[in-house]
Nucleic acid binder design. Structure first.
Length: 534
RNA sequence: CGAGGUGUAGCGCAGCCCGGUAGCGCACCUGCUUUGGGAGCAGGGGGCCCCAGGUUCGAAUCCUGGUACCUCGACCA
């Protein structure tokens, strides 16, 4: 399905085999011919996924103008187009959070060092990757040029830059909570966090990144567990419906659990190279932080109890997930629900008179689409040729492109090109044009989802011996593997050491099945999901 | 933190072995022709060759030391 042939910056031909799927039945109702076309390979110096997946990813991020490396090691500049994708994610997620009763707030970037050490597991998890603020002033270098840290300005207590906000939030909640009447607290914040990673990759793991973190406080365990699971469902729905990425909901093993959590739930997504990517997490924190920060409430019987907690988050890493799930060797492919621009209109003309007439019609069509709630852009840039624009918008993954030239004008039609399948057709502007475009957008959303789901399903295996397990992972079509595991961290680590794969999760809807652990041979009651991971 | 790699025009790179006027492609500027798949021709502008020392008549090039970033590994919710 994702085959492509690279050629040397010339007119070699790249053909794509389009896989038929039941979705076409829907599209067929348009009763329009689908023209398969042949594309000259346009992008120069753009490796294919097969050649070098990792480089393909890095080049795509830059060429699609999503982000670029900054002057600061491990940090990136998110460019306007990349940021507009994040804004779309924020918009949709924020609505879902509000819908489930949450409100937004903002807590400080700086956290007193002592806070971090109050929860034992938490400190162990994060201490190694914290940026620390030790001084609050610079001064002119007395021995030469530039600025130096003013030794007089040493902080009494050092501040760390938040790697996550549990500690500062629970030290605040302590003041907010006295009685069960103050509960629950359902707060989310959109923020940046810093984790001093040794090895970084654009969007997937950077030193500073953007995310949202929800932090809730509850009067009962049941309520907190419900919240944890509810937000996991919110994330899963967002991933599937908005991002068009199928995910597996599951619970992490103790080894992979969040530092300070009782249980960590996750959604795991399949990337085109067969690796797994954790696309979101939701933690049941039990009473760990309440105990660490002494947060108690008086229940209805006027007895003091520790508060129950959850936290949950997704980050700009989702942009990485989006790229690695859907994109092809010609660039990004964005699901319409998420795409900042859903339809781009490219006017085509020769003479000045044509330009005017064509542009005017483009604007008219643009207005119609906009009125129907479709996010549309008319590319009126006079300095770029249509061919250049086609390639550019394909690189940027805009789902639908409309081409409008004198010939179309005469026939009252547009040329409609869909990014996902790289097909073109002529569509009349008479009749239910808007309806057809909306159907097309729906169809593209469904197609992207179906393609990555088909790929994932085709590369999801069962292994019953360690030898089979390794062979499956090392093959060219490695992917997700369900295998029996004896439940110990020791075995989990050993399998990681031997194969590079980790347990991504124990799926929530996992069927029980008698078996023996592929490593230790001890009895097991269910298979767990293994994969190499980002 | 280990191992490699790279710092030369806005971007991508060559030049470095073997020291002697700073180069190519893209982008940019001007003009004309173009515009339905990354336009063509002609002319033009742009450099502290990462930094600091050293060798030399002379250093992008050789030597020493620094520094930054990238890639791969280890590490990592």
């Amino acid at each position: 399905m994702f085959l492509c042939h690279k050629s040397k910056k010339s007119l070699a031909i790249c053909t794509k085999t389009i896989k038929n799927s039941p979705i076409y039945l829907f599209f067929r109702t348009f009763a329009l011919q689908i023209i398969l076309i042949f594309y000259p390979k346009m992008a120069k110096d753009f490796p294919t996924r097969q050649e070098n997946y990792s480089e393909w990813y890095n080049v795509l991020v830059k060429k699609a103008e999503l982000a670029e490396n900054s002057e600061v090691r491990g940090c990136m500049v998110i460019r306007p187009y990349g940021y507009s994708i994040w804004e779309r994610m924020q918009r949709v997620l924020d609505d879902m959070f509000k819908e489930t009763g949450h409100v937004n707030a903002y807590f400080p970037l700086f956290i007193p060092k002592s806070y971090l050490s109050k929860e034992a597991d938490h400190v162990e998890g994060f201490a190694k990757e914290c940026a620390v603020v030790t001084h609050h002033r610079l001064m002119a270098n007395p021995n030469g040029k530039g600025l130096v840290v003013d030794p007089e300005a040493k902080l009494e207590e050092e501040l760390i830059i938040r790697p996550t906000s549990e500690t500062i939030i629970w030290s605040t909640y302590k003041n907010w909570i006295q009685s069960y009447r103050d509960l629950p607290i359902l707060v989310n914040q959109w923020a940046n966090v810093v984790r001093w990673e040794l090895r970084t990759r654009m969007f997937l793991r950077t030193t500073e990144f953007l995310w949202q973190e929800g932090h809730t406080a509850h009067a009962s365990k049941e309520e907190a567990v419900f919240e944890t699971r509810q937000m996991l469902d919110v994330y899963a729905e967002f991933a599937e419906k908005t991002l068009g990425i199928p995910v597996i909901k599951g619970v992490k093993t103790p080894n992979e659990r969040f530092a300070g959590a009782e249980d960590t739930y996750c959604i795991e997504a399949f990337m085109q190279d067969g690796k797994a990517l954790q696309a979101g997490t939701s933690h049941f924190l039990g009473q760990n932080f309440a105990k660490a920060f002494d947060v108690k409430f008086a229940n209805k019987e006027n007895q003091l109890e520790y508060v129950w907690a959850t936290s949950w988050g997704v980050s700009t890493r989702l942009i990485g997930a989006l790229i690695m799930s859907h994109s092809d060797d010609d660039g990004l492919r964005l699901p319409p629900v998420l795409a900042p621009i859903q339809v781009v209109i490219v006017p085509i003309y020769r003479k000045e008179a044509e330009k005017e007439a064509v542009t005017e019609k483009c604007r008219e069509v643009g207005k119609m689409l906009k009125a129907a709630g479709i996010r549309v852009k008319i590319d009126e840039d006079d300095k770029k040729q249509p061919g250049w624009k086609f390639a550019e918008w394909e690189m940027k993954g805009v789902p639908v492109r409309l081409g409008m030239g004198p010939r179309d004008l005469a026939a009252n039609q547009v040329e409609v090109a869909r990014r996902d399948l790289k097909t073109k057709e002529n569509m009349s502007l008479d009749g239910d044009f808007i309806g057809k475009i909306n159907d097309l957008l729906d169809n593209i959303q469904a197609t992207l989802y179906q393609q990555i789901k088909d790929l994932r399903d085709a590369r999801t295996y069962k292994a019953d011996t360690l030898a089979d397990f390794k062979a499956l992972l090392e093959g060219e079509n490695g992917g997700f593997i369900y295998a029996h595991w004896d439940g110990t961290t020791e075995t989990e680590l050993k399998i990681k050491e031997l194969t590079g794969a980790t347990i991504r999760c124990i799926p929530l809807d996992n069927p029980l099945e008698e078996g023996v652990c592929i490593y230790s041979g001890k009895p097991s009651t269910q298979r767990v999901l293994f994969a190499k991971a980002y």
